[in-house]
Design a protein around this nucleic acid. Structure first.
Lengths: 249, 249
DNA sequence: GAAATTCCTGCAAAAACCTGCTGAAAAAAG
DNA sequence: CTTTTTTCAGCAGGTTTTTGCAGGAATTTC
């Protein structure tokens, strides 16, 4: 493994977990601890990381004002992201919505995964396009300031013209009676079309959104193939959804 | 195997695997390691790859952390950005290309400016969408890893359907004889269409790109209305362009 | 305060790099 | 069609980078 490559790997790990251990890295990359130390030293000298005894910390650890750190429920979302990644197979075409859970997913994609991602979410696109093996297709239209995704007739028409393998939605609310619901009309329209254009639909939600609902209807539960939360699939809070035929992960 | 052929092979391998080893290449192509080294050197000089000790990496490796911080010629680009902002009037619709100069422009836009920006450049879009008073319209299509802009037939068709007030291009090379030129075919196509769809065209270039040219033609000097560099408009290096009727800023 | 890590310094071997040179091949000129 | 010029690939040498290791200093932890 080349030096730059190693350092990129370290930075990536650091973005993901906010900390790395020298010991862990030299294990993972299979080089001597001295080499890791020197890499960390270099990265620290160029101001990309904060070196500490035994490893290093990400910069965003200190200035906790930065975007990805104060995401609400970050740990849960990382768990969800990891589970969702398991559903993405080689060379799939995947359509994703916006939202912080999706961003977490985008950031955690393994380097070696080859796939095509289609999205209108600016933060997600940015993450996807950092990945070397992922083709990214952008849904164009006007950007909605709140949600940082493209919305409008063009976006909807474009999505409608697709037929992809997998659709991964970060959802705002789901319950037995109303199905999947949302609070933003434009976003809801988009999600509807995304569901129609996909073979399989995956819903990502942290557990506190389970059994809640919002004013705008997106789809009934029948349209959802997988529901991913940070909970164990056997958790009783999810049993009702299992009965509806949704696969829990 | 010819030189061009070899280099094409290297680029191909690089697109495929994101890294190549000098040793591996000289094995595969069956030439001496020096030859490979010289090829890599050339490709690196023309900015197509990133050369590292032991081989080379694809451009998509350049982590955006590095992108934001040590942009080459950053100070000059900030000067250019400030000048360019002077051309943007209230409620204008502005089409912008990609490139680090444009990113600098996007970052420097005054908070109170109300306008609509249209672009396919991911970093630029991100900056625009941080601004409170700017409407952002995204040109959708597949993302080119090298340039981080959307390219393709959809993007071109979309741009062709527009007619905007101002088009701001970060340009790669300009000289009296060839006009505006570039080294990336896809990018050149986009810029051509952007120029056609705009009332006025502004070219941004740091002075060292003045009087240079690249293989792919974009437009003759007649199509350019304004040329902005970090130099004083009266600088003698620019006088030839003034004579051609281009307004210098 | 002692044991265990981790860190730093210097060193040496291996790998990769650069420079200048040479002869061969291709391109341009006559 | 020949001569000249230019470009190209390989080689020799000397230099730099990278990496792992050893031994001692510094830091953490219990």
């Amino acid at each position: 493994m080349l030096k730059k490559e190693r350092q990129a790997y370290i930075l990536h790990q650091l973005n993901l977990h906010n900390k790395v251990l020298s010991s862990g890295l030299c294990e993972a990359i299979n080089v001597s601890e001295d080499t890791i130390r020197r890499d960390l030293q270099e990265l620290a000298d160029s101001g990309k990381i904060i070196k500490v005894h035994g490893g290093a910390l990400s910069l965003s650890f200190s200035d906790f004002n930065l975007h990805n750190n104060n995401v609400y429920g970050k740990d849960e979302k990382q768990v969800i992201a990891r589970k969702a990644i398991g559903l993405i197979k080689e060379n799939m075409v995947v359509l994703t919505s916006g939202g912080t859970t999706i961003n977490e997913l985008a950031r955690s994609l393994p380097r070696e995964l080859k796939a095509t991602f289609i999205s209108g979410s600016i933060p997600a696109i940015l993450e996807y396009s950092n990945h070397p093996n992922i083709d990214v297709i952008v849904i164009g239209d006007k950007i909605s300031k709140n949600s940082r995704i493209t919305i409008g007739a063009d976006a909807i028409a474009k999505i409608r013209s697709l037929k992809v393998d997998l659709c991964i939605l970060g959802i705002n609310a789901i319950d037995i009676k109303h199905g999947v619901t949302d609070c933003d009309w434009d976003v809801a329209q988009l999600k509807k079309v995304m569901i129609d254009s996909s073979q399989n639909v995956v819903a990502l939600a942290i557990s506190e959104k389970i059994d809640t609902y919002q004013p705008i209807h997106i789809c009934p539960l029948q349209n959802i193939d997988y529901l991913i939360t940070e909970l164990n699939p056997d958790d009783e809070r999810l049993s009702a959804y299992k009965k509806m035929g949704i696969q829990l992960i």
